[in-house]
């Protein structure tokens, strides 16, 4: 039961990470391997605000969201659009964006290491509370609550706002979206920026209950990617289920076998997905 609950709570934040990356990959067609660094930046901001001025991470969110939005928007405009424009086909854009975002990821890690090379440790709401007969830290619960809230807002935005509609249209088919008068470049930039802010938000939330450091981003990128592939690119429902599965399995392996094997367990899931369901849990065979 303990495992189930902490697995689900962890999965909740994974959902958020995967939603962010899904927006960037599914809509802007950029496999952003610097996504994890966005998350770590969020965590670093949260840590700083808390340690230097005792600002609650939940308040830091108000600052982090617009900053991450603008930062990611600029990255897309300045660094990624040139790649989109010069790409002669999707394959080339794929390779270029992988290399470019690797570059950004290393640059960000390099900068963060220079800023703060140690662990981001602080203690926020580290009180145990009991739900369903098992004890969890309050910060995990709060983070989970916020993750659900922000995830829900995101889904509502995608489904019911004009901009969200346009985002989904571009995700399905950029060429047709262009035909109905959608500015694909602008919408892609928007999706990329929103995706980046979501990652930063996830970082703030995660930093309340996991100790991060500057170089840990790549682990989160990996997990987000595994979740997206498991859930199916662009599939929100799939991402949620996949994130919860990953959270559960990792917690299971970490508590029952060895915490050193969480990555290996993520890989095992990844491998099974690739072998048996490469189009995602709910994907149809072939397109």
């Amino acid at each position: 039961m303990d495992i189930l609950i902490s697995g689900l709570l962890l999965g909740g934040t994974y959902v958020l990470i995967a939603l962010g990356l899904n927006l960037q990959y599914g809509v802007a067609r950029i496999m952003n391997l610097a996504n994890g660094e966005m998350l770590v930046l969020g965590a670093l901001a949260s840590f700083w605000m808390f340690v230097s001025s005792a600002v609650s991470p939940l308040l830091t969110l108000i600052l982090v969201i617009p900053l991450a939005f603008i930062g990611n928007w600029l990255i897309y405009r300045l660094l990624l659009i040139p790649l989109v424009r010069r790409a002669r086909h999707q394959g080339q854009l794929e390779v270029d964006s992988i290399l470019a975002t690797f570059g950004m990821s290393f640059v960000l890690v390099g900068i963060m290491v220079a800023l703060h090379g140690e662990y981001f440790t602080y203690s926020f709401l580290a009180r145990p509370i009991t739900i369903l007969q098992s004890t969890v830290a309050l910060n995990r619960l709060v983070a989970f609550g916020f993750a659900v809230l922000i995830g829900a807002l995101l889904v509502l935005w995608l489904n019911y706002s004009r901009a969200g509609m346009a985002v989904r249209a571009v995700a399905v088919d950029p060429a047709s979206a262009r035909l109905v008068g959608i500015n694909v470049e602008k919408i892609s930039a928007l999706a990329f920026a929103v995706g980046g802010s979501v990652a930063a938000v996830a970082g703030v939330l995660i930093s309340t209950f996991i100790t991060l450091d500057a170089s840990v981003g790549v682990i989160f990128t990996m997990k987000a990617l595994i979740i997206i592939i498991m859930g199916g690119v662009g599939d929100v429902r799939g991402a949620i289920v996949a994130a919860l599965i990953l959270g559960l399995v990792e917690t299971l392996v970490a508590t029952l076998i060895d915490p050193g094997l969480t990555l290996a367990s993520a890989y095992l899931i990844f491998l099974l997905v690739l072998l048996f369901k490469p189009q995602g849990l709910f994907g149809r065979a072939q397109t």
């Binding site: 470019a100 570059g103 950004m104 290393f106 640059v107 390099g110 900068i111 090379g117």
Partner: peptide, 16 residues
């Protein structure tokens, strides 16, 4: 301390 940063710059240099 700048090796990581340098790796990033190298990647970006190659792509751009």
């Amino acid at each position: 301390n700048f090796t990581t940063l340098f790796l990033g710059i190298a990647f970006l240099t190659i792509v751009y």
